[in-house]
Simulated assay, not measured.
Amino acid sequence: MTTRTTKTKKYAALLRGINVGGAKKVPMAELRTVLEELGHAGVQTYLQSGNAVFTAPEQDPQTLARGLEKAIEGRFGFRVACLVVDGPHLKAVADACPYPAAELEGKQLHATFLSEQPAADRFAALDREAFLPEEFTLGDRVLYLYAPNGLGRSKLAEALARPALLKGIDATTRNWNTVAKLVELTTD
């Protein structure tokens, strides 16, 4: 008798725009329950801003994201954009960071995770010089943003969030401390 084993992988779910200013409240305990009800194992949440880590049979992250979006909408009655990234992709994002992450405060460096890869020419019209010392670099389904005064005061972050630049792409931003923690939680 042959026993078939399913290969599993660790993933991070990044929910966009929840628990901000009292809108779209998703308690982390309930998010863990939703993920467990979807059949995922080892579910953990990190902070209150919609970060969860889980183990699931290896599959397309966008399929996992759509399933989570549907389950959240069914449970809470509103749509939440979700991005799911696997542990190896998170580690690759951290390893490819073009900025000296170890020398910066977490609030100065951010990663905007993208549901798909935008063409680099979408950003050609941005006058990068006008935003200095702020900078951004496009990576593999991620935008790295160096904002020395933090995201809340960043004019470049505001410009990058314009609908035309990321039209048709779900995006959510995390500071570098959160990125590092998610890498830690999804690494075997």
Rank of each mutant, 00 (worst) to 15 (best):
A119C: 06
A157P: 10
E103V: 06
H89M: 07
P88N: 10
G152Q: 00
R122C: 13
A65E: 02
A101K: 05
L165R: 06
E135Y: 14
V80R: 04
D121T: 08
P100T: 07
T173M: 06
E134D: 10
V142P: 07
T178G: 05
L165Y: 08
A161L: 14
L83P: 04
L145C: 01
Q48A: 11
F78V: 08
E135N: 05
T45A: 11
A171Y: 12
L90I: 00
P133Y: 05
R174L: 05
L165S: 03
F54W: 12
G74N: 11
L47V: 14
A65R: 00
A81I: 02
R122K: 03
E105W: 03
A147C: 07
E58P: 15
K107H: 15
A81C: 04
S115N: 07
V43A: 01
L165W: 13
G87K: 01
L126H: 09
A120M: 06
N149H: 08
P88F: 14
D121M: 06
E73T: 11
L64Y: 02
G139K: 00
G77Y: 11
D86M: 10
P148K: 09
G77E: 09
D127H: 13
A161N: 10
Y46T: 11
V142A: 09
G139T: 00
L109Y: 11
P57I: 11
G67F: 03
A94Q: 12
A119Y: 07
I169F: 12
L138C: 15
F113L: 02
D170R: 00
A124V: 01
V84L: 14
F54D: 12
N149G: 08
D140W: 01
P133S: 08
A119S: 07
E58G: 05
Q44R: 02
F76V: 15
I72V: 12
R162D: 03
L90A: 10
D127K: 12
E134T: 00
R75E: 09
G168E: 14
